[in-house]
Nucleic acid binder design. Structure first.
Length: 572
RNA sequence: CGGGACGUGGCUCAGUCUGGUAGAGCACAGCGUUCGGGACGCUGGGGUCGGAGGUUCGAAUCCUCUCGUCCCGACCA
């Protein structure tokens, strides 16, 4: 491609609206332009990168036995009503009415459509398993779109859905997808981890998120320093607390006045104890109606997702002061499990503690020397707390580390929830009607490009992994008026392209500095410069964007060298 | 939806407090000089000051409403 003919509007200054690097650089490098909040146009260069990711995704999905199809973006309401999600999905689902007054929505995901398709076309176990995917623009009316392509309302996604005859088959498919995802992100040249994710009601270890490691990531992941354990913060657990064999003598429960002391810090300072010697009682509202008290050690945080799964709620939220008082009859800050009027669950760590402080369920009073089992019982005990850095790995006991990541992929064993709702069935080899066991597998394609930039950039711009860079080589003509130089550039351009190298030839009548800056900005992995030294000594310069390593060569040598470098860089 | 900030040429911003009829740099067009890390000079084009209403002799500036954008929280590829 000739730069002079490319729509590549690079910017010297960072637009004020962009907060994170990937957004800033994509704007500056002429990859995207915003149409309106969360909705972007992909310019030629941005699209080029997206297409690279798509291609890798296609190749790996096909290799894993999946088939590509393309489903409609507009979906009829009745399908969603059938699955029950028309009511459940919430305002993120953009709904509208057509001229006949029929309700429709813009597809945020395609479980309904695919299940409908399969129920109509697949009727026998002989046709299974089926694994279908598409790469398509999705629309989700996000509450708060942000960070450019990281969280848009409209975005490009690969969504795949599998249908198996039974659980066992579904698990095999899941594993295949897991492996395919690993290959995909590896081939994209990204540093990533797959982590166990929350599976909600289904349970088991059948949901993994694929996280690109980057400081600016919105997700926190927990990794073990010693072994391969990695999990999403919501899911991460740690080793059970050590049970000390020489338990101290249990002291008698004692009620003490703690006037005006409500927060952990205030109470522990007042009682002159450590936060680890107190159990706090947090009230959560399950599905807005059912209060539940959660006991955790004073210095811990409750992980709401774990709580949600434990009690089987759809939604849990920390109760406000009014809700606490209304449900427990005690002002917040003085709640405790002894004689409390609402259900109580405890983090398992609490059961190992001795002689701790708790609220007395009476304004301005706490108990000290409380003991689990002796002074109170709870309805359920489970792992309910947020993991912290340095906790012991649940698998090997090693030290846990917290890092930030960007979720670019998520695979999930769905089970039969959709196939049951939509009555999607087939006949097994005994002629018995069965519901399909489903899986779903997503990749944020446009987000993957953004994540790559978050991971690869410096002060001069983007540093793309070669497999997803919009071009392999930037060929700079520094002396467009010099016929000899220009002829050499054109020659290199031809030869490299013939070898399959994607070349962006900067043939603009611009000063060298401008061309250098632009080449760096857009993140092309290799740069070939033809200028003064060519005119004088017949040498061109080859430079790597990644490490800045520069070599000189004749133009004939250059073709072979560039070819070799590009090939090497593309092999991951 | 709750909390915060901001809307002035394509971009970055000044001017708003203290009303007097719109500026700078970059970008764009022309000419000249320059030419290996975002050059310089001269000339030129381009702005309903987000929108509506109000106050005033006079509003980018003050008041009211409204729309939009961005950031922080719950959601997610």
């Amino acid at each position: 491609m000739r730069f002079s003919q490319l729509l590549l509007p690079t910017l010297k200054e960072t637009p004020a609206e962009a907060e994170v690097v990937s957004h800033q650089l994509m704007l500056r490098a002429g990859f995207i332009r915003k149409l309106t909040s969360g909705i972007y146009t992909y310019l030629p260069l941005g699209l080029a990168s997206i297409r690279k990711v798509e291609r890798i995704v296609r190749e790996e999905m096909n290799r894993a036995g999946a088939q590509e199809l393309l489903m409609p973006m507009v979906q009829p309401a009745d399908l969603w009503q059938e699955s029950g999600r028309w009511e459940k999905y919430g305002p993120e689902l953009l709904r509208f009415e057509d001229r006949h007054g029929r309700m429709s929505c813009l597809g945020p995901t395609h479980e309904e459509v695919i299940t409908d398709l399969v129920r109509k076309t697949v009727h026998s176990y002989r046709q299974l398993p089926v694994n279908l995917y598409q790469i398509q623009t999705k629309f989700r009316d996000e509450i708060r779109p942000r960070f450019g392509l990281m969280r848009g309302r409209e975005f490009i996604m690969k969504d795949g859905y599998s249908f198996d005859a039974d659980e066992k088959g579904a698990e095999i498919t899941y594993k295949k997808m897991y492996d395919a995802y690993h290959r995909i992100f590896e081939r994209c040249g990204l540093k990533f981890r797959s982590v166990e994710a929350d599976t909600g009601a289904i349970g088991g270890s059948f949901s993994h998120e694929f996280m690109v490691l980057a400081e600016t990531g919105e997700d926190t992941l927990v990794m073990c320093k010693e072994c391969a354990y990695a999990a999403n913060m919501e899911k991460a657990s740690c080793m059970k607390p050590e049970v000390s064999h020489d338990k101290p003598e249990l002291l008698p429960l004692e009620k003490v006045e703690t006037p005006g002391k409500r927060k952990v810090k205030a109470v522990t300072e007042f009682l002159d104890i450590k936060p680890q010697e107190l159990v706090k009682t947090m009230v959560y509202m399950a599905d807005d109606t059912k209060p539940v008290a959660v006991l955790v050690r004073g210095d811990r945080e409750v992980q709401p997702v774990k709580l949600k799964n434990l009690i089987g709620a759809i939604e849990v939220e920390l109760a406000d002061d009014k809700q606490v008082f209304d449900s427990a009859g005690v002002p917040s800050g003085y709640l405790g499990p002894v004689g409390i009027k609402i259900p109580v669950v405890a983090d398992r760590e609490v059961t190992e503690m001795c002689n701790f402080a708790i609220g007395a369920n009476e304004k301005n009073y706490h108990f000290v020397n409380a003991n689990f089992g002796r002074d109170f019982e709870v309805d359920q005990v489970a792992d309910l707390r947020m993991v912290t850095e340095g906790d012991r790995c649940p698998e090997c006991g090693g030290s846990l580390l917290l890092t930030k990541g960007i979720e670019v992929g998520h695979i999930f064993k769905l089970g039969t929830s959709y196939s049951e709702a939509l009555q999607a069935t087939f006949l097994d080899n005994n002629g018995v009607e069965k519901t399909f066991v489903m899986g779903c597998f997503g990749i944020g394609v446009s987000r993957t490009v953004a994540a790559a930039i978050e991971q690869g950039h410096d002060k001069d711009g983007i540093i793309f992994p070669a497999p997803i860079a919009p071009f392999h080589v930037a060929l700079l003509n520094l002396s467009t008026k010099d016929e000899k130089v220009t002829a050499a550039v054109e020659d290199l351009y031809e030869k490299l392209q013939k070898k399959g190298v994607e070349v962006l030839m900067d043939d603009r009548d611009e000063r060298p500095g401008v061309k250098f800056k632009d080449a760096d900005l857009i993140g092309v992995p290799y740069r070939v410069v033809v200028g003064k030294s060519y005119a004088k000594e017949g040498l061109v310069e080859i430079r790597s964007r990644i490490d800045g390593e520069t070599v000189s060569a004749t133009s004939d040598e250059a073709v072979a060298m560039v070819l070799e470098k590009v090939r090497a860089a593309l092999e991951v």
